[in-house]
């Protein structure tokens, strides 16, 4: 300890700061460059996108790849006809399925989470663990019975089949997130409402839920993203444009050898915009929720 070399303070090289900034820049590039590449490609002409050496910036930039989804030109019709046609439908399907999942999930999870945050009841621990356990069940383990079940009820290739599966995926984690949010809502509010002789539903609707709104929004966003991003169940359960979601159609681009890279990139960008916008808008709450859903248990 006595051999510390004394360097006058003002000459000391701020190694820590340098390392920090180098790492920060390196990570920023690592995180953003891959994404930049498909965004850039989606605004390029196909000739530029496949040129060697590559064009890093779309020049001339074109909206052709996006417009093609609405009104495909001859070349686009020739090479990627089906997937191109299906993209607008699948975006609509994804939107409907993800929104419905978010709403249904929120209703079910709010009831359950409220019970864990406000009521002391027998079996609550066991029930919470059971919810958590269902989250651990791999989707692949239930896909076959799920498929057979949906076939029996004639629900294959419908929104309902997808909404039901995604709600069960999102439900356990949403309950866990919401119970934490609900606990931070002061009890006095409800007690005051009770003194005013408001019924339970009235109290929930006009006092409790408005205060808990930020948590509810975060939970809804979680469920929306779960539903929007899911692929395997959609692959099994849908077969036509009646219910195919955007991941299924996007995957079709990848397995089709004729596909233009630029159109595929544009479809990818369209698929990522909704979850990305939500993630950025609700960043703080989502980060809290993710941490609460796993670290705190």
């Amino acid at each position: 300890m006595s051999t510390v070399v004394k360097v006058p303070l003002r000459y000391r090289i701020p190694w820590k700061k340098i390392v920090l900034y180098v790492l920060a820049v390196a990570f920023a590039l690592y995180l953003v460059l891959p994404f930049y590449w498909i965004v850039a490609m989606s605004f390029m002409r196909e000739v530029d996108a496949i040129s060697v050496p590559p064009h890093w910036i779309p020049n001339p930039a074109t909206l052709e790849n996006y417009l093609g989804f609405v009104n495909p030109n001859e070349a686009q019709q020739l090479v990627g006809g089906r997937a191109i046609d299906e993209t607008p439908y699948s975006l609509r399907n994804s939107l409907i399925v993800a929104t419905s999942t978010a709403v249904l999930n929120l209703v079910l999870a709010t009831f359950a989470a409220y019970s864990f945050s406000r009521l002391k009841f027998r079996g609550s621990q066991v029930l919470l663990v059971l919810y958590l356990l269902t989250r651990m069940v791999p989707g692949i383990a239930i896909i076959i019975p799920f498929y057979l079940l949906m076939r029996t009820f004639g629900l294959l290739d419908t929104y309902l089949a997808l909404i039901l599966s995604y709600t069960t995926f999102a439900l356990p984690i949403t309950i866990w997130i919401l119970k934490d949010f609900f606990r931070s809502v002061p009890r006095e509010l409800e007690e005051a409402a009770r003194v005013d002789r408001c019924g339970w539903f009235r109290t929930m609707w006009s006092v409790f839920l408005p205060v808990a709104a930020p948590g509810l929004v975060a939970a809804a966003v979680f469920a929306f993203m779960t539903a929007w991003n899911e692929f395997m169940f959609a692959l099994f359960l849908t077969s036509t444009e009646a219910a195919k979601t955007i991941p299924v159609v996007a995957a079709n681009f990848a397995t089709d050898f004729n596909t233009q890279f630029t159109v595929m990139a544009a479809a990818g960008v369209l698929a990522v915009v909704p979850p990305l916008v939500l993630a950025l808008l609700f960043q703080r709450k989502l980060v809290q929720g993710m941490a609460a859903g796993s670290v705190k248990g």
Partner: peptide, 10 residues
């Protein structure tokens, strides 16, 4: 958060 928001297919 960017990679987290990205669907696996994309």
């Amino acid at each position: 958060l960017l990679p987290w928001a990205m669907p696996g297919v994309v």
